[in-house]
Amino acid sequence: MENTVSQKLDAMVKLQSIDSKLDEIKKIRGDLPEEVQDLEDEIAGYETRVDKFKSELSDLEASIDQHKANIKSYKDRVAHLQDQQMNVRNNREYDAINKELEMLDLDEQVSNKKIKQDQAAISAKKEQIIDTKTTLEERKKDLSSKKVELDEIISETEIEEEKLMKQRDKALKNVQDERLITAYDRIRSNAVNGLAVVSVKKSACGGCFNVVPPQRQADIKERKKIIVCEHCGRVLAGVEVEVVEEKPKKRTTRRKKKEA
Rank of each mutant, 00 (worst) to 15 (best):
Q66T: 09
V88Y: 02
D76K: 04
V211H: 05
M1D: 12
R251Y: 05
L136G: 02
V241Q: 09
Q7P: 09
Q7G: 08
L9N: 08
R216Y: 06
E61H: 04
I220Y: 05
R251N: 10
T135P: 15
K225Q: 12
S6N: 13
E259N: 11
R251C: 11
V36Q: 01
Q37S: 08
I226Q: 00
K258T: 13
D107I: 09
I64A: 00
K225C: 03
E240I: 02
D51V: 12
M103H: 15
E2R: 06
L172E: 13
Q37N: 14
E230V: 07
K113V: 10
I154A: 09
L32D: 07
V244R: 11
E158W: 06
V36G: 00
Q7V: 05
L180G: 02
V212H: 06
Y74V: 14
S73T: 07
V198H: 06
E24T: 06
A44M: 14
K140V: 08
S155L: 04
I115L: 11
C205V: 01
I122L: 03
V239G: 04
V50C: 08
R49C: 05
L9P: 09
I28F: 10
E34L: 15
M86G: 13
I122E: 00
I25R: 01
D76T: 02
K99N: 11
S123A: 15
A121D: 07
A124Q: 04
I129Y: 00
G206Q: 08
K116E: 15
E152S: 12
R216Q: 13
K249W: 05
N193A: 11
N87P: 03
L104F: 04
K21N: 09
R223D: 04
T157Y: 09
K221M: 01
K225E: 14
A96K: 14
E259I: 10
Q128R: 07
N112I: 08
E242S: 06
K221P: 00
K52V: 07
H80V: 09
I64Q: 03
I71G: 02
E56I: 06
G30C: 08
E222F: 08
K8N: 03
R77V: 03
M103T: 13
C205S: 00
K140Q: 15
T182S: 13
D59T: 06
D10N: 13
Q85C: 00
K258R: 15
D95Q: 11
I115A: 02
I187L: 09
G238A: 10
V228E: 12
L136H: 11
K163H: 09
R49G: 07
V244H: 12
I129M: 00
V200N: 01
L22S: 07
T135F: 13
A260I: 07
Q167A: 05
N190F: 13
L180I: 01
L172M: 12
V200H: 01
L164K: 01
E246P: 15
N210R: 07
E108T: 11
D219Y: 02
Y74H: 14
K202P: 02
I159L: 12
I97A: 09
E34H: 08
I227D: 06
L180V: 05
E245V: 07
K221E: 02
D38E: 13
Q16T: 09
V5L: 03
T157E: 04
E240N: 07
K126M: 04
V110M: 14
I226W: 03
T48K: 10
K21H: 11
G45C: 14
E40S: 05
D51M: 11
K250S: 07
S73H: 04
